[in-house]
């Protein structure tokens, strides 16, 4: 049964302890609807792991395993190997980690699991900081965003570096399917999860998920902000299939990045000069994507 095209059944149950309006919890709900019950989830330490499994309760209605912070991809490798030895070719294996777990501490394990050609889908849910430990800067933190370890200081105004281009690094491994997705576009997220799971090899999704306390936003604005991120090209929705990048949703008319920044407390320290710099950063990243659109830019090995 489906409601407006989505599976009616919930595999990530109510009663989890995520904050009101949590973008990541919404993403998980839909990732699981798309993946279905024949799925094993290996999750990295993070908000979602903590809020969903307070012993003796679990929000999960699929088999789920957590071990540590940096090893979801390695745990998933063990799960897949065991399934192979059991002759189980049907079960989906999905590893999920936040941006800290995926861009930073679990980067090696992710790269290793991909290099080994592991049949699994790795999903990096990105809320652009270490939220579970209290909003610290990660390699995925947006430029000039204020976090507790990249504060809006008098001398240094927030994070000074660009986002690590993890999807392209993954694509460079030779992965057949890499995509960005967002809670702004749930049918697109669903389609990408299902497409990725059909591939007989490693696949990767980079999923944009707003964080209420981390971004200092109102809990009702999760989707509005996510939509704005797509409309301003801050978080473009694309897929790289067989080494070719294609946009899956392109804004009809590009909105100024300021309209995105102004909604969030983490950017409230920005001067007009910094907003201009960020506009330049976003434009340059988007121009790069448009430049490679439709061309075979990555070799495919798996």
């Amino acid at each position: 049964m489906a409601i407006i095209g989505f599976e009616e059944k919930e595999f990530f149950a109510s009663g989890h302890r995520a904050c009101a309006g949590c973008g990541e919890a919404l993403a998980l709900r839909h990732i699981m609807k798309a993946a279905g019950e024949k799925t094993i989830v290996a999750m990295a330490t993070g908000c979602m792991e903590v809020v969903s499994t307070p012993y003796p309760e679990t929000a999960w209605k699929v088999p789920w395993v957590h071990c540590a912070f940096e090893n979801a991809a390695a745990v998933a490798s063990g799960v897949r190997a065991a399934l192979n030895m059991k002759g189980d070719k049907e079960t989906n294996v999905i590893a999920i980690g936040g941006d800290g777990a995926s861009f930073d501490i679990g980067f090696g394990a992710l790269s290793g699991a991909i290099e080994r050609g592991t049949k699994f889908l790795y999903i990096a849910t990105d809320n652009e900081a270490y939220m579970n430990t209290g909003i610290q800067r990660s390699g995925a933190t947006f430029p000039y965003a204020a976090t507790t370890t990249s504060p809006a200081g008098k001398i240094i105004p927030g994070k000074q570096q660009p986002k690590k281009p993890l999807p392209f690094i993954v694509a460079s491994h030779g992965v057949k399917y890499v995509a960005s997705a967002s809670v702004a576009n749930l049918p697109d997220l669903k389609a990408k999860v299902q497409k990725a799971l059909k591939v007989n090899g490693p696949t990767f999704l980079h999923v944009y998920v707003p964080c209420i306390p981390g971004w200092k936003i109102d809990s009702s604005t999760t989707i509005e902000i996510a939509r704005k991120a797509v409309e301003t090209n801050v978080f473009p929705l694309y897929e790289i299939e067989d080494g070719v990048l294609k946009f899956t949703q392109k804004p009809a008319e590009k909105k100024q990045v300021e309209s995105y920044l102004i909604m969030q407390g983490r950017f409230k320290h920005l001067t007009p000069e910094l907003v201009k710099k960020i506009q330049g950063y976003v434009d340059a990243r988007f121009a790069f994507l448009e430049g490679i659109e439709g061309k075979k830019c990555f070799d495919v090995l798996y």
Binding site: A13, S14, G15, P54, Y55, P56, E57, T58, A59, W60
Partner: peptide, 28 residues
């Protein structure tokens, strides 16, 4: 914390949870 979990706590071997979706016992 234990008030969030109705009934006596059962300590399963290896902390495995065998009741899928049991967070629904906790009303948010």
């Amino acid at each position: 914390i234990s008030k969030t979990c109705p009934g006596p706590m059962v300590f399963s071997k290896g902390a495995v949870i065998s009741e899928p979706g049991s967070t629904m016992k906790y009303k948010t």
